[in-house]
């Protein structure tokens, strides 16, 4: 077994252990506080834990399947996220072809370019080509009402759900000396740090939360949850330095940046939900809401993490 797969196995055992622990706690809480399934908070917690099992198993399968597996998984995530996003925005008849192009042309090409490892064109495909082509397709329909608004919404949907989200699998294209064949561990590092930050902010907030941090955006987020979550997720990230090309101090700094971006990403996406008058983006994941509800923090941290790593560590 190669060193990379051995590290991956250790990581999976660790995550699996935490989930077993979480499921046991959820089971005990259910027996004690909600034996008839009437306590909403406990039921939601258990639904969330079950969904975590499913997500971890899916990611593990994608990792085992290799590069193509990871690309397909994230292409599917982009598709489902884009579907949730477009559902909530203002579209008119005249946007039909631009939206169809976003789903059936831009999204596949974006992921194809990653598969072909064409970083140069990949990095400008959505921001330049799609950005200019989408309004051209829409304008041919001749409907000018709310034109700027409609075009910016579709463009933003593409940037968030396709371009930014695809920076997670883009980590596979980096060439880091001494780290060959281990890039998939960078994805594991990013996902573990972001998601544990989300979970720990929730836990710290539930235990010690007093002061609301952004009452108009998200009533459940507190200063205590934010500080506790960011600090403990940064520690978790630092302790995972052995799966990364970083030193422990570098891993801590990276984790700190990742968690900050994730936090603000969550705020931005919840501002959009508030504006649209919905609580969740969808119903894809039981207990969590839509896919974007789970992906919002990853989407904001992935491009920054990618570019920091690329600038300082990668040859490409």
């Amino acid at each position: 077994m190669s060193a990379a797969s051995l590290d991956m196995l250790k990581l999976l055992l660790g995550v699996g252990g935490i989930l077993v622990l979480a499921s046991s706690i959820g089971y005990v809480l259910k027996q004690k506080l909600s034996p008839d399934g009437s306590n909403g908070a406990i039921e939601n917690l258990n639904a969330r834990i079950r969904a975590w099992w499913a997500m971890v198993v899916l990611i593990a399968i994608a990792f085992v399947a290799g590069r193509v597996g990871v690309l397909l998984l994230f292409a599917f995530c982009s598709f489902a996220a884009l579907r949730e996003f477009i559902t909530l925005i203002n579209t008119r008849r005249g946007d039909h072809w631009a939206i169809a192009a976003a789903f059936f042309v831009v999204l596949p090409i974006n992921y194809f370019l990653l598969w072909a490892e064409q970083y140069g064109i990949y990095s400008i495909f959505v921001p330049v080509y799609a950005f200019l082509l989408m309004p051209i397709i829409a304008v041919l329909h001749g409907d000018t009402r709310d034109f700027l608004l409609r075009i910016s919404e579709v463009q933003w949907a593409l940037m968030i759900c396709v371009f930014c989200a695809s920076h997670v699998p883009a980590l596979l294209t980096l060439q880091i000396p001494g780290y060959e064949g281990r890039n998939v561990l960078l994805i594991a590092f990013l996902v573990i740090v972001v998601q544990s930050s989300d979970v720990l902010q929730y836990v710290w907030g539930k235990l010690f939360g007093r002061t609301k941090i952004a009452p108009t955006l998200s009533p459940s987020k507190t200063v205590e949850g934010f500080v506790g979550g960011v600090a403990s997720a940064t520690l978790i990230g630092a302790s995972l330095w052995w799966i990364t090309p970083f030193t422990p101090a570098q891993a801590a700094l990276m984790s700190f940046i990742i968690t900050l971006m994730g936090f603000f990403g969550g705020l931005v996406m919840s501002a959009i939900k508030r504006d649209r008058g919905v609580k969740d983006w969808g119903h894809l994941i039981e207990g969590h809401g839509g896919l974007i509800d789970r992906l919002d923090s990853v989407v904001f941290s992935a491009p920054i993490f990618f570019h920091l790593t690329r600038y300082w560590w990668s040859l490409t």
């Binding site: 884009l82 579907r83 789903f103 969808g282």
Partner: peptide, 9 residues
């Protein structure tokens, strides 16, 4: 009048 559907929830 359209023949290509777009994905929406």
């Amino acid at each position: 009048g359209e023949f290509v559907p777009i994905p929406l929830i």
